[in-house]
């Protein structure tokens, strides 16, 4: 059966790159079709009807025509441009961190509606709590979960024994928590405090960022959670997260 020549989708622009004289190639996460690269012809011309529609972090309703190399946008309508996360460079960078990870962990044309919903929920959470790290850490863990890389948080990943309080460590490359007796070869093992493990379990149990309780987590524990999740994301992504480097570099600016 032949595929229809056009299709419709609701999608979030994750990144854009310039092509030709005035074209844009946008990477979009759509609910219906997963991640797509689409060509928006003439979208950089001031008088184009597509001008301004394909900035990163814009939720669009699009009509797309199938092309030989790239599918081509025929119509686009902005649903929301998430203006409230674009009010400053730090919130913008936080939102782009979400976009970069979604791009890195998504497969082309492989629909993942739960990941699409999580992405939008996290952008809304950033808009509501611009300087809170908890929605981002929740996103990190849920992204790993929805992509099939959820780290083990309750048992030893090596021997399977249930973890005893205060007797656990963490190894991103091994796939999660370890008991003190196990040490898989060629794996970087890091200490993990009980409060940090509890925060990770709480993040795992919370389905949506809006459901996160208001917590006063000590900075040291926040750093530990961030460090463990960051190592896990980088292990599976196999490259540094550029927007994280940007966030680190501008933290003191």
């Amino acid at each position: 059966m032949t595929q229809p020549r056009t299709y419709r989708a609701v999608g979030l622009t994750l990144r854009k790159r310039l092509a030709g004289e005035a074209d844009v190639i946008a990477t979009m996460l759509t609910r219906e079709h997963g991640k797509l690269d689409v060509l928006a012809r003439g979208a950089r011309r001031l008088t184009s009807k597509l001008m301004g529609h394909f900035e990163p972090l814009t939720l669009l309703r699009v009509a797309v025509a199938r092309g030989r190399a790239l599918d081509v946008i025929s119509e686009a309508e902005v649903i929301t441009a998430f203006q409230s996360v674009k009010t400053g460079y730090q919130t913008t960078a936080r939102a782009l961190y979400v976009a970069e990870l979604v791009d890195g962990f998504s497969a082309e044309s492989n629909a993942n509606p739960a990941l699409f919903d999580l992405t939008l929920q996290t952008l809304n959470a950033i808009a509501e709590q611009p300087m809170s790290d908890l929605p981002l850490r929740h996103f990190d863990l849920r992204l790993l979960d929805l992509s099939g890389f959820l780290p083990e948080l309750y048992c030893c990943i090596d021997c399977g024994a249930e973890l005893e309080p205060e007797r656990h460590r963490y190894a991103a490359g091994a796939g999660g928590t370890l008991c003190p007796d196990c040490a898989p070869p060629d794996t970087l093992i890091r200490p993990l405090s009980l409060p940090a493990l509890k925060v990770l379990r709480l993040l795992h149990r919370t389905a949506q960022p809006a459901g996160l309780p208001s917590l006063n987590i000590p900075a040291a524990v926040q750093n530990e959670v961030h460090s463990a999740l960051s190592a896990t994301l980088q292990y599976w992504l196999d490259r540094p997260v550029q927007s994280q480097r940007f966030l680190d570099a501008t933290k003191s600016a």
Binding site: T47, K49, G52, V78, T80
Partner: peptide
């Protein structure tokens, strides 16, 4: 809005 542009096709951010 750019010179020669049309309101109908302007995106929300530009119009705002």
């Amino acid at each position: 809005l750019p010179v020669g542009g049309t309101l109908e096709f302007a995106d929300d951010t530009t119009l705002t």
